[in-house]
Write a protein that binds this DNA or RNA. Structure first.
Length: 969
RNA sequence: GCGGGAGUUGCCAAGCCUGGUCAAAGGCGCAGGGCUUAGGACCCUGUCUUUUAGGAGUUCGUGGGUUCAAAUCCCACCUCCCGCACCA
């Protein structure tokens, strides 16, 4: 519904679709984007390949468009650019989708039908996962072609291709050989019914099955263990009692070799954590009340007391009480004391005092009491307790310090002490670990309630290996990373990265070569695949076949290891072809630039570096990473629920590819979120159409003698080229576009104003050149319309085949720049005076500064450039010189001139220094035509030195160089 | 907490890296004018305060500092946004 609104107005004025089609065919016919090794320097640019579980939307378009501009720019700069694309089938979401189709899930089928516009007969096939991937693969590919991405499609592949599987197997064998694949246990969200790990896509309501690790402190009573689960093991020093739920039944169970008393819910949880749990008896909460337990590590005893806030399904059903620092505990204790009359069997209650162990700024001895008073809580079942607890925990965790009564942890910050105490109690055997789902209950799509399971024999990539980390760190510091801010982020990710599970039990992908029960997980089989683009070309051409390929093939291609003849014959490859593959790899590798969205920094991109460094020799390590932010829709995040996700192909149909490309690129610099909105697209479209119109006027390349304004606009063009090139090299594409599209526009306007005022028609050749250069520079950004403009300008061949322009120093004419600046500032001054005085001008006279002032100006400029701005010194100096002694009459001139000069930029001063003398009389005569055009009146120009000048109001004496005096009547 | 980003004139948003051309682009909104039967669209002018001569004053989250010169550099503080995993 919202979708339609966004596209209400397609305001079609030009047939963009057929223009795009026309040029796309030309490119295709010329095989423009197919890249094979040759004698040129290569540039290998890659983007993270898409996961085809839905059509791509504008957001996806951003990364690919950035990469495409990069590729096109480098191509025009003379490089042999390889820009390939593959498709990532590996993963579980497609599997989940397919299962829902099998189950005839209305919601997903409706989404396919209306949101993604998949034909019904296709949807029926979707019960097979690969069909989903295949369908969206094609859909995404078509979109990429329509967007004009300059991809070499001969190298396309999917990650379930048999040859790719061989490649991934090889990769994993290598990693294992280097000791980087290890085995261990690992907690996961788990469905007890399906006997499988669950991810967000497997749960009802798409809940992420996240969980928290609790420390379970073992309190002892007789031979029994009463385990209390806590998030704050450091508070063990402040325990005053335990809490149980008096009306609950507890289990006595043999857990491994100990007798535990726990809730039955807890017993279930423990079973999934690889504990042997056998129930041996029952006991009620009430029976436990009043008993004494021994506090581990402290050795003293505390009582078990009743509390209603205790829940049997949270933790173990037994809670350790730290009333000084836990609001729940404090309140429960207060409640007991209030009702002491009811608990005649517990006469010691009134003697239990909170033990304060943490000191936090802004809180007293008993922080829990402070916060309870602040929140106005008076009952342990108050809903406000949760919030109070959260606030106090955060405050104490980040700002608290342990007090003297905490033994060897005294004076430590809570942040550190928490981890230290946890280790200490775990090592001494007085604690255990329990995992608890954060948002229970989490239900699997099958309906069963999920649990946390400790998986045995899970395979990990050992990203915590210190040597590996160190290597990655040092390479990150050498790599080119754009934008620069991200470098720190990468380093930080490397620091906190731990072992990562690299195989799962279901999903599409490659099987672990040494343990076929596992499938290599999607973020592990997509880290060095850029090397596979080289091979894919030969696979697709039918020159090599997965069936006969063994590891030696990859060793030969990537490491140049082994005997060509033997490997060729083993792999059933013609030796020459094997040799070519190897040479091609050596030519294109390493990856020169990898583009990706920001969300992939903490995972894919970091793994990409890790794995390249592990597997390849240094000369093949990636050179550059370019990271971009996401795309917003009218300032809001795109989301299914908002209905503001626009499929890329729909957008192309309505706006045309070029307008979308520009809209995405121009609205933000790399790291910022780009805002895509209708208004911006329309503005761009208008702009492009107007430019195309303009181009039809400038077919001729004929030149006449260059006038001042011609030299000026040519100078400006050189500066534009310089600035645009600089920006684009730094991938500041928004900035580059601003220069090319908008900033230069004001120069052009001034130029046209000058031309029209002088009624000139002999400048079409200059306009042709200017537009050609501009169109060339636009070509990487808006490739289709640039071709159209290029041909309208009468240029041969293709814009995308032309060379990126280089600035021509010889065409920068400083004198004309100074002259035109003088003209326009004088014109501005005149305009300003008329505005302030609100007068109706009849006649305008301007006066240039006297000769001695010009000389003085140059002297002052020289001194100021040298750093001397002392007015007194300057005046002395000028008086002492005959040429400028007239300064005596007007000492104020020095101060004003110094200010003039100081308010110029350094460049400006240099330029004035270089130019030296500007004949202002001559320049200002040019003003006449402009004044005539704007105000329809005449203009006179005099020099201040002129004896016969017309100067009724004695204005001329205020004239300064670059600042003529003005008289308006 | 750690890491990253941001705070600009009514609103959105450029400028900051590379200090001076910055009272600060552009768009929206608003006001006046043109065009139009009217509305819309479109075009022109204005839009911090002050000023009948191109000027002056006060502004770029807050407070300091560096500099001849600060939206821009440095320091401190305040506020807001994003990420922190086994998920593509």
């Amino acid at each position: 519904m919202l979708l339609n609104n966004l596209f209400l107005e397609s305001d079609k004025t030009m047939d963009w679709i057929s223009i795009e089609e026309k040029w796309r065919q030309k490119w295709h016919a010329e095989k423009q984007f197919e890249s094979d090794p040759d004698e040129r320097k290569k540039f290998f640019v890659t983007v993270a390949y898409p996961y085809p579980n839905s059509p791509q939307h504008i957001g996806h378009g951003r990364t690919y468009t950035l990469a495409d501009v990069h590729a096109r720019f480098m191509r025009m700069s003379g490089y042999n650019v390889l820009f390939p694309m593959g498709f990532h089938y590996t993963g579980t979401p497609i599997l989940g989708m397919s299962r829902r189709v099998q189950e005839n899930d209305k919601e997903i089928i409706e989404a396919f039908r209306t949101l993604y516009k998949v034909p019904d007969e296709k949807i029926r096939e979707f019960s097979e996962p690969v069909k989903i991937a295949d369908y969206f693969h094609q859909e995404i590919k078509n979109g990429m072609i329509e967007m004009g991405y300059s991809i070499d499609w001969r190298r396309e592949f999917t990650t379930i291709d048999p040859f790719y599987n061989k490649f991934i197997e090889w990769q994993f064998k290598k990693l294992r050989e280097y000791g980087l694949v290890i085995q261990g246990t690992h907690p996961v969200g788990w469905c007890p019914k399906d006997q499988n790990p669950v991810s967000q896509h497997d749960t009802l309501g798409d809940v992420e099955p996240s969980f928290t690790e609790y420390t379970v402190i073992k309190f002892r009573y007789d031979n029994y263990v009463l385990p209390a689960a806590t998030l704050r093991p450091e508070t063990i020093f402040g325990v005053t009692n335990l809490w149980v739920k008096p009306d609950a039944d507890y289990e006595i169970a043999k857990v491994d070799n100990e007798e535990w008393i726990i809730s039955s819910e807890c017993a279930t949880k423990l079973r999934f954590l690889n504990k042997k749990v056998t129930r041996t008896g029952n006991i009620t909460g009430a029976e436990l009340v009043g008993k004494k337990v021994k506090v581990p590590e402290r050795g003293d005893e505390v009582f078990i007391l009743p509390a209603t806030f205790v829940k049997s399904d949270d933790g173990t059903g037994i809670v350790m009480s730290v009333p000084a620092h836990a609001p729940f505990d404090y309140q429960a204790l207060e409640d007991l004391k209030k009702n002491a009359a009811k608990y005649t069997n517990l006469p010691f209650i009134s003697e239990i005092k909170p033990i304060s162990i943490i000191e936090t700024e802004g809180y007293g001895d008993i922080p829990a009491r402070d916060i309870i008073e602040k929140f106005g809580i008076d009952d342990q079942n108050s809903p406000k307790l949760e919030e109070a607890t959260k606030e106090l925990y955060a405050k104490e965790f980040y700002g608290g310090k342990l007090k003297q009564n905490t033994g060897k942890f005294a004076r430590k910050a809570v942040t550190d002490a928490k981890e230290d105490v946890r280790k200490w109690v775990l090592e001494s055997g007085s604690a255990d670990i329990l995992y608890e789902l954060n948002e229970s209950p989490v239900r699997c799509r099958c309906g069963a309630e999920c649990v946390v399971k400790l998986l045995d024999n899970q395979w990990f990539l050992n990203y915590s290996n210190p040597e590996w980390k160190a290597k990655v760190h040092s390479w990150i510091n050498e790599m080119k990373i754009l934008p620069e801010e991200i470098r720190n982020e990468f380093n930080h990710v490397v620091d906190w990265l731990k072992e990562r599970a690299c195989a799962r039990q279901h999903g599409l992908g490659t099987k672990l070569p040494w343990d076929k029960n596992w499938i290599i997980e999607s973020l592990s089989d997509s880290v060095i695949y850029m090397a596979y683009y080289i091979i894919a070309k030969y696979v697709n051409a039918g020159q090599i076949n997965a069936e006969y390929i063994s590891d030696s093939f990859f060793d030969y291609v990537f490491f140049d290891k082994g005997d060509l003849k033997k490997i060729a014959s083993d792999s059933e490859i013609i030796p020459q072809i094997l040799e070519n593959i190897k040479k091609e790899f050596q030519y294109y590798y390493p990856v020169n630039a990898r583009h990706s969205g920001r969300d992939l920094v903490p995972n894919h991109l970091t793994f990409f570096i890790f794995n390249h460094l592990a597997i390849f020799p240094k000369k093949y390590w990636p050179e550059e990473i370019v990271v971009n932010g996401s795309v917003l829709m009218d300032g809001k995040k795109m989301s299914k629920s908002m209905g503001n996700i626009i499929p890329l192909r729909d957008a192309i149909k309505i706006h045309g590819a070029d307008s979308i490309r520009l809209a995405i690129l121009i609205s933000a610099e790399l790291l910022q979120d780009a805002d895509f909105n209708q208004e911006a697209v329309r503005g761009i479209k208008n702009k492009l159409e107007n430019m195309l119109d303009e181009c039809t006027k400038y077919k001729t390349t004929r030149y006449t003698v260059l006038m001042q304004e011609d030299k000026w606009i040519q100078s400006r063009l050189q500066q534009l080229i310089y600035k645009a090139t600089f920006s684009i090299q730094k991938m500041r594409l928004r900035e580059a576009l601003h220069h090319i599209l908008y900033e230069f526009e004001s120069d052009l306007q001034w130029y046209i104003r000058r031309i029209e005022a002088k009624n000139r028609t002999d400048n079409l050749g200059i306009m042709h050149d200017i537009f050609s250069a501009r169109v060339t520079m636009m070509s990487p950004f808006a490739p289709y319309i640039s071709e159209e403009m290029w041909s309208k300008l009468g240029n041969p061949s293709l814009a995308s085949k032309s060379s990126w322009p280089t600035p021509d120093e010889a065409k920068i004419d400083l004198l004309s720049i100074q002259s035109e600046t003088l003209l326009s500032t004088t014109l501005d001054d005149i305009k300003n005076i008329i505005k302030v005085t609100k007068m109706n001008p009849k006649k305008i006279t301007v006066y240039t500064a006297a000769t001695w002032k010009v000389k003085a100006y140059q002297k002052i400029l020289e001194r100021v450039t040298g750093g001397d701005i002392n007015i007194g010194n300057l005046i002395k100096l000028l008086i002492s010189d005959k040429e400028t002694e007239e300064i005596k009459k007007d000492p104020d001139f020095v101060k004003k001139t110094v200010n003039d000069i100081l308010s110029d930029t350094q460049d400006e001063r240099d330029s004035k220094n270089k130019v030296g003398f500007v004949d202002e009389m001559k320049v200002l005569f040019e003003l006449e035509s402009l004044i005539k055009r704007e105000y329809g009146i005449g203009l006179q120009v005099f020099s201040e030195s002129d004896q016969n000048k017309y100067d009724p109001k004695n204005k001329s004496k205020t004239a300064r160089p670059y600042k003529p005096a003005i008289l308006i009547e």
